[in-house]
Nucleic acid binder design. Sequence first.
RNA 1: UGCUCGGUAGCUCAGCGGUAGAGCAGGUGGCUGUUAACCACUUUGUCGCAGGUUCGAAUCCUGCCCGAGCAGCCA
Length: 465
Amino acid sequence: MKMKTKRTLVKAALGREESMDSILIKGWVRTRRDSKGFSFVEVNDGSCLKNIQVIVDATWPDYAKIDEVTTGAAISVTGELAASLGKGQKWEIRASGLEVLGTADSSYPLQKKGHGAEYLREIAHLRPRSNMFGCIFRVRNRLAFAVHNFFQEKEFLYVHTPLITANDCEGAGELFRVSSLDAKSPPLNDAGEVDFGEDFFARPTYLAVSGQLEAEIFATAFSNVYTFGPTFRAENSNTSRHASEFWMIEPEMAFCDLEGNMDLAEEFVKYLIADILKNCQEDLSLFARFVDKGLLNRLQFVVDRPFKRVSYTKAIELLQKSGKKFEFPVDYGANLQSEHERYLAEDHFRCPVTVYDFPKEIKPFYMRSNDDGKTVGAMDLLVPKIGEIVGGSQREERFDVLSENLKHHGLSEKDYWWYLELRKYGTVEHSGFGLGFERMLMFVTGVANIRDVIPFARTPGNAEF
RNA sequence: UGCUCGGUAGCUCAGCGGUAGAGCAGGUGGCUGUUAACCACUUUGUCGCAGGUUCGAAUCCUGCCCGAGCAGCCA
């Protein structure tokens, strides 16, 4: 019986130290170049950016089949892995057999030459086969792995918080309603409004905008926990850095104050960048060449230097003294505008900056009140080019103060009874933050649009794939 | 949602009142090792949609649709 050759991934073949008498590869044709007497076929299977070059000699009995070996076709090649006779690659495969597994005619939308990001977005089912998106999604994979490594090395517990929630969390933002009621004729109450008491969960429910409140439950049992999952916002945002469905990482730590929180955020961001610099060099080199020439220097810079920290009050002073004309006025008590954040990270400090201790009026109910009575222990980590990448706070652990804050924000204690009980039984100082996974990926790859770092982007009016 | 810019060949784009172009892709032929191969020849268009102005509209005007950038909301 003939031994069946096991398939080798292109990445493994290219990384070989020695030649192979017999090799089997499978993948998709990127391009074919014909010469008199033989053809060069470049095959990619997604395992790495590089293709492997296959030589098909015209003396091969089935050489007529070469016409079907077109850009986009899926093929299987057997042959010998040998040192390349040409320049530009170490190894090539001298084919002894070739099978076209799936043809692709000339209507194949992915050509060998430059496509625009917007066009590729319209063919999200094929763009992973392009060089750029191959790199993006390999880095995305590694970044997700690095997230878990970071927290697992620190003994943080990975917790799965619910995606369907009954609290319209923090009273902020637009939520997607989750309902199984008949949209055409929903049950009505006496006032003629939709009666969500009749709905699946016997109350109004939504897709979660954050797992924070539930993460706090676990932090007050396991000390250090993190979530990593999808989250949903129904805001009609049309920008290059907002998506309706995105992934977020939310660590939550008991016995930790705002400073410990900022320390962790900084360490986390640096760890992720260092991991990608180390493990995704080939993919990063493509971004450095075609997307952002300054990428590698900027990433190295961020890993090497400490982040700056300024209080909100100090940040306002800096902005007022900057002499720069802003479209929006810089006033104490107002939110920092994008242009203000950009000035701090890109012009003034020229590095990531953490702004902390914000006025209480512009922040949610759960953030811990500072002793000055005016500010809360909040922090935003701002990064050049992208802006806010992390938002977090120390949480209000004092029952009376939290209860007061709920009232102040017009929220009912009844809806947050379990959240309040965390403060009633064994309450402790605790803190946490949220890091936008796609924003981190944008920073690490230099890709400017969030729609291009998520496999299938959900934005207002778009859910095709 | 507001402001700004854009929609011309399969893709990238030029043309911006005088009747449709280039490069690439595709096709044909050539080339003894190519590297987004090269050389020669060659096919392809409701110029986003609907009105209007004009002798004449891809080009000017209005409305709509779609996309992008920025702002707000945030991660």
